[in-house]
Design a binder for these strands. Structure first.
Lengths: 215, 215
DNA sequence: CAGGCGGGTTAGTGGTCGTTAACCTGAGGG
DNA sequence: CCCTCAGGTTAACGACCACTAACCCGCCTG
């Protein structure tokens, strides 16, 4: 439509993947047709088959790609190893936040359309996800050593849910801007992890933990 | 399949809705056909049209129903008014956790298939969701008075993401059981809310908040 | 200039799916 | 005993859609 002489820093494949991700996130994998994806990149319908084996292949490449990038980024930050486990955890959190804030459609797809994959791809994605989770679990356990592993694992899942909540936010100005949002999410994640360690005395429904921060 | 002489405490409609919710959650609205829904309740295909105007109507009734129940439950707990704002917040959290743990398919649908609704239904659901969010925002602000409203609102969304993370959990025994899970989620939510108030001194990436709980 | 080929095009095809049509049956009620 | 009617059934229809076939063209290479 627009760029007739595009310097094309992004290949056609990547352009297609980006638009496909957006459309899949907006209307669901089954909800968007190949014609629409084609139209979004200026070609029409079956032209996509010059770049991908099929619609499924696009979704597979998106989900595998995102999972690999998440894991690779996490591994990198762990190996860099900060001054302390807490610093590594901070880095993990910031990395995930950047991802959630910058690649919303992918985050959405990541836990929404997994089951539309062929068995093999789904297994691969799940394996990558599991490794990513375990990466976090190890780091979190170094920061909160006295917590049970199963609770830490559940907490990691829950914090992912927290960090990945950004796509669900209403558009307008009733919410903080991107930098404030990043800092807020960081605080919330740390706050949640800090609450993993049971102050077992506190039963449910008495507001003990909420009261703590005022004390 | 099983109950040939069902005392039918649940009407046929409810039975259909329940199965439809499960299937929609598993494979997405577009991913399941009316024949499958029918088969799940022992009748086949078009028999459903004796109970619902169409597939869309089932989804609409599910989403509107869940939103109304969430809001009604929340309002009830607020009006009951505990001993303190913190106690009311505890009640809200417990209510939401019960919902997330007991009605996973609905929770999944709730933020996954909203856009498949007709304009009118979608507006209604969004309005109910917004009212539910604002209910929480008011209560949280009473507990954390010094926090900016926009940050509290974002935090509420994020905590919903945290509490609604249960459907994403891997099946096996690597996770806590239901009661432990409920208590853990409760703690995590309070921990997150407790971190809304900026200790503005702490920049990103220095682990200050994580360190706090050890100090 | 030949020719391969990357990257498009349009037309068609087979299958799936939501929905409707037409028909059936068994249980009450007058 | 008939009539109604709720709640099914199967068959068919129309739309949509992923994918294939067949064709095309501009660019680069030799």
């Amino acid at each position: 439509m627009s760029n007739a002489h595009a310097p094309a820093p992004t290949s056609r494949r990547e352009q297609i993947l980006k638009e496909a991700a957006r459309l899949f996130a907006e209307r669901g994998f089954h909800g968007v047709g190949v014609d629409e994806i084609g139209a979004a990149v200026g070609i029409s319908g079956p032209g996509l088959y010059r770049h991908f084996a099929g619609k499924d292949a696009m979704l597979a490449e998106l989900l595998v790609g995102i999972s690999e990038r998440l894991l690779a980024g996490g591994r990198m930050r762990v190996e860099e190893g900060g001054e302390s486990p807490a610093a590594v955890l901070d880095a993990l959190i910031d990395g995930h936040i950047d991802f959630a804030l910058d690649d919303r459609p992918l985050i959405t797809l990541h836990d929404r359309e997994l089951d539309r994959l062929r068995e093999a791809d789904r297994k691969r994605v799940r394996q990558l996800q599991r490794q990513y989770v375990e990466l976090w679990v190890e780091v979190v356990r170094q920061v909160h050593a006295e917590s049970a592993e199963s609770e830490v694992r559940a907490a990691v899942h829950a914090v992912f849910g927290l960090l990945n909540s950004t796509p669900h936010l209403g558009r307008p100005g009733s919410l903080p801007g991107r930098p404030e949002m990043a800092r807020l999410l960081h605080r919330l994640a740390l706050g949640a992890f800090g609450a993993v360690d049971a102050e077992a005395a506190a039963g449910a429904g008495d507001g003990a933990v909420a009261a703590r921060r005022a004390g």
